[in-house]
Write a protein that binds this DNA or RNA. Structure first.
Lengths: 244, 244
DNA sequence: TCATTTAATTGACATTTATCAATAAGTTCC
DNA sequence: GGAACTTATTGATAAATGTCAATTAAATGA
């Protein structure tokens, strides 16, 4: 983890014009930061720092105090719930231009998840107390934050309900479709994730994941090499996902 | 489902003094409604109606449009995710004086869960558009709503992570401790829930739940009759819950 | 009260999934 | 290029859990 050159510090607004949250004024699909006035935005971004992470590095650690939100400029991150007995569950992946609030914000102010870099990644940290301060001042902004928060949790619940309702093939199908349609958005796609990580996304052991993948390959539903997966029969795969 | 006498309609503020959300001005542990001015509260409760439900009746049905929030005055409700293949998962129970927003509010405005009465139950419905209207006007209120929303989801995620990380004995132990400490708050406790429902809370079949319960009985951890459960060794049970 | 229905329990068995061990393939570093 | 290490794969087996059928107990309603 290494800090980037001074220019990324928002000393004044002209300089940070090209900075992630400021330049395009949104994170992900919800245009959260677009609702702020230049002054408000400045107050939020004032002491923001952009940090680079290497693959595998931890960005936020579960159970530590939640003092900052993270805003991902580019790269891919994973949200992991570290269970007892070393059982990890990857709840979601976070792409470029996304803000991640971490769920516990406002409630108990500690992190319920670990967030780690999957690829090389640049992100910035936003002081939660500055954010909370804005919530009282700009209601359109706070509604957008509420919306973002609810949206995140609904997605996460979707994942988790899938995990507890479906057998392995359904869960693997879910993971593959999620990777293709939501994360990499092409087919075939290269994946940076290890088989262990894919298994952690699917709530199973890596051995089981590999076996399931092999069955899909044998049935002609997918084609995979070491680092790429191609979905050949998406409809059938969707059907498997539905039926659990 | 039957509507109660006119007095519960908030025609004017004097009359609804004893009504759930108005009289004590809070729902559950977060004093959400206490942050509203009398006028704001009135605008929210204006067309509120209190409805009685019989055990088993559906209060909100999954996948229907989310037009109202529900505020439970007394009785016990269950929040159910209805999965494919008829597999239900009870995500949480809701006690008296709780507001339930249903998660999808503001985001997609349809219900992601079914809510059903477990016992006889009185609740009132609050128009979401009126609530959203207040969000823009009263920032303290909207922050409290955000807090409540986050809190709900964190609890739900806790449940679901338990479900996907633990083996059956751990999940059953969780359910028993949850019932004792969070819902009925006494020991032994009578439970109104069927074994099927307890199994749905624990993410397993009723047969598996019963077997697990029997093992706990044989080990002297609990004592249970048809409709009551007594936790005899809470520390051991907590240990089982932790170890999965 | 008895007949009918529903819920709870038990047992035998099949299926799903994890675990452990062994091997193969790829990476890294010198 | 090769040793040391990590990751991926496969197989054999055990453990966890679900399914199905049979039985018992309780609740309901005429």
């Amino acid at each position: 983890m290494s800090e980037v050159k001074d220019a990324t510090l928002c000393g004044n607004c002209t300089e940070c014009k090209y900075d992630c949250c400021f330049s395009n004024r949104h994170c992900g699909d919800s245009h959260i930061f677009g609702l702020l006035s230049p002054e408000e935005l400045h107050s939020l971004m004032d002491n923001k720092r952009q940090i680079h992470f290497r693959p595998g590095e931890t960005i936020m650690k579960q159970n530590t105090p939640l003092t900052h939100l993270v805003c991902i400029k580019n790269g891919l991150a994973k949200v992991v719930s570290e269970g007892p007995n070393g059982k990890n569950l990857i709840l979601q992946l976070i792409k470029s231009n996304s803000i991640f609030t971490g769920g516990g914000s406002i409630v108990d102010d500690f992190r319920h998840f670990t967030v780690a870099a999957v690829t090389d990644l640049d992100c910035c940290f936003i002081d939660t107390s500055r954010l909370y301060n804005l919530l009282t001042k700009n209601s359109a902004f706070s509604i957008e934050i509420l919306k973002h928060s609810n949206s995140q949790h609904m997605k996460m619940l979707g994942t988790l309900i899938n995990l507890s309702n479906k057998y392995m093939p359904g869960r693997v199908a879910d993971t593959l479709l999620y990777l293709k349609n939501n994360i990499f958005e092409k087919n075939p796609f290269d994946f940076v994730l290890s088989k262990q990580e894919l298994a952690d996304m699917s709530g199973m052991t890596k051995e089981s994941f590999i076996r399931s993948l092999k069955e899909f390959e044998d049935s002609g539903l997918i084609h995979h090499t070491r680092n790429t997966i191609e979905i050949l029969k998406e409809i059938e795969l969707t059907e498997i996902s539905k039926n659990g």
